[in-house]
Design a protein around this nucleic acid. Structure first.
Lengths: 218, 218
DNA sequence: GTCTATAATTCGATAGAC
DNA sequence: GTCTATCGAATTATAGAC
């Protein structure tokens, strides 16, 4: 009798597996749902039921795969922080590119990445608490070859003296602030989805030029 | 018998009242606590019990004075939005100041205001939903005398052509982004509380100069 | 692995004493 | 006006069937 039951279950499992492969496995669907919702609205505003529904799976599966809401959130938070840092680390320690080129790459890479993840900046900056993640992000800039190059250009008089923190705030602020203020900018029909995308493409070209002009100001 | 009870109650009321006057009335203490906590961590992350405890009053008093958590939150949200808009509206439609002066005032007024309310930007930008408040904020800029002046200076060739949205994003982004990224900037001991304040004072002077240089860039 | 049902806890809100 | 006590709904998490 048990053999029959087991057989039935195995068949069902196969069918289920085949069906799931069309739309991804449950574990993936949960991660995807969690990524979307947590990034959009943060930890507290999202309920585990929201995630289960968005994923199209049963509530119990969240705990089966991830033990708790908090563990699941930590995965998403880590993902987002790392995606955020990757842009910096890929650019900032390259010894073959100039200051100007690095700024161009930082701006372009961030705008490209954020165009596909527009809610990430608000998420990352809102959930900056006691995380060890951020120390890495900061260190990435502070000890970078980029800042050494900048110091050198200041000494040689090529650019005006500027506090490194102010330079970083300017580059990062000009680049990612539009995504932070995106909803306010759009929600009045004055700026549509497409217009926003066009603006960002324009800024991709202009921000490096603007920064260049700013760096001449004493 | 009822008279005695009433007398006792009145005396207790007097005592309570006197004591409360030292640290403000209950209603005020609740508002202050709600302002602090909601602005710091947003609506969902804060529980009514947190507010009651921070205010040093009983949980039931929140509903006695404000009917619900949501009503209380709306008061705080309105406060913050209006404080945010006030800076703009005080500057942007003045017909006696130049573009340059308006930018100087916007930057200085925002930095001064935010130095006392550093969590406000993240709060305002996070809770931008379906609120009618934002339409006002947007309209403030879009139909402003400031933008008319800018258009004129573009026509006269005094400044290079620029999309109004980009100009606004630049001014506002450079000014308030440091407060949004403040925790990440500070939490690594690399930038202390005082250093941050110094940086902001420096930016108060530099941002208008930077914008000025940017506006020459074609 | 996935589901149903439910336990355990938290949270917003209220009733009623004083 | 303020407090204690508690209700009812919402929410996270788990037990157990399949």
């Amino acid at each position: 009798m048990n053999f029959v039951l087991h057989l039935l279950r195995s068949q069902q499992k196969m069918k289920t597996k085949n069906k799931k492969e069309e739309s991804g496995k449950a574990e993936d669907k949960i991660i995807q749902a969690a990524r979307k919702l947590f990034t959009q609205k943060g930890y507290s505003a999202i309920k585990t039921r929201d995630i289960a529904q968005e994923a199209g799976v049963n509530l119990a599966l969240l705990n089966y795969y991830f033990r708790s809401k908090e563990k699941l959130f930590e995965i998403i938070m880590k993902e987002n922080f790392e995606k955020f840092m990757k842009v910096i680390s890929e650019v900032v320690d390259n010894e073959k590119t100039t200051v100007k080129q690095k700024i161009e790459m930082l701006v372009a890479n961030y705008i490209d990445m954020l165009s596909g993840n527009p809610d990430m900046p608000l998420f990352v900056l809102s959930h900056g608490k006691q995380d060890p993640q951020r120390m890495k992000m900061q260190a990435k800039f502070i000890n970078s070859y980029f800042l050494k190059q900048v110091q050198q250009e200041i000494k040689s008089g090529k650019i005006a003296p500027i506090h490194p923190a102010n330079l970083i705030l300017n580059i990062v602020g000009l680049t990612i602030f539009p995504f932070i203020g995106r909803r306010i900018l759009q929600s009045n029909a004055s700026i549509s989805q497409e217009q926003f995308a066009d603006l960002m493409e324009e800024r991709k070209v202009m921000i490096p030029k603007w920064i260049d002009a700013m760096l001449k100001v004493k």
